[in-house]
Nucleic acid binder design. Structure first.
Lengths: 122, 122
DNA sequence: CTATGAACACATTGTTCATAT
DNA sequence: ATATGAACAATGTGTTCATAG
């Protein structure tokens, strides 16, 4: 595949961007490790038949690190389990806000595209 | 990949279903061959940055034939060109209406899923 | 050139396996 | 068992090539 000069020809927003947006939200709310985020996402969107799997969650978090938006550190899990979990913080919050804005644009575009389809056909 | 027991775990509607819906609409309107359909779709959704390519159009039409929804026959193109084009008609219109209904459900689901994301995050 | 179709290549994402606690 | 991560595999779709007029 050549390159898409800049989102040209694209259909709907990608799952990856969708999840990354929620990961940023979870970090903003200061409570997060991967499995918790997945469980919350699953609970929130189960009503729409959407249940993201753990690999997509981790891929999204890793990509946010590569983007320079998040950074990770380890922490002992609460309770008597003495198990490390990976916690995320912002590495560059300005970048995070910019990314959110971009995803918002893509979400709105996708919604409007689908709404037009419904209007045109039904 | 195993099988998705029935649309479980899925994110948004697929481009293929989206295009098949419009192909059915074009056949209902009784004017269609592949390239025309593509041009109309491109014109309609260019405003959202979405421009489907010809392969997806043909794949969608072929799949509708495999589904038993459309059938094809050839026709001489209008004008002095004596070139054959492929025209589609319904093979089973009840199936077509059922499929439209299913896609409508998936469109609505997708819109609502995205709307919830916007509400939750912004 | 336009229209149709198939082949190929890459991108996305689901499933499975590995490792540590 | 739970949490994280990587490897593997299937699907979806964009690009290129082929063929016919």
């Amino acid at each position: 595949m050549k390159k898409m000069p800049r989102g040209e020809g694209k259909f709907l927003i990608k799952q990856r961007a969708f999840i990354k947006l929620f990961m940023i939200k979870f970090v903003e709310e200061n409570r997060l490790y991967g499995m918790q985020a997945m469980d919350e996402l699953k609970a929130a969107f189960k009503q729409f038949g959407y249940e993201p799997n753990h690999s997509e969650i981790y891929r999204s978090l890793h990509e946010l690190i590569d983007d320079g938006i998040l950074k990770r550190h380890k922490k002992l899990q609460e309770g008597a389990k003495y198990k490390e979990v990976v916690i995320y913080q912002f590495d560059d919050y300005e970048k995070a806000k910019l990314y959110k804005k971009q995803v918002k644009t893509d979400l709105d575009r996708s919604i409007n595209l689908l709404r037009k389809a419904v209007e045109d056909v039904f």
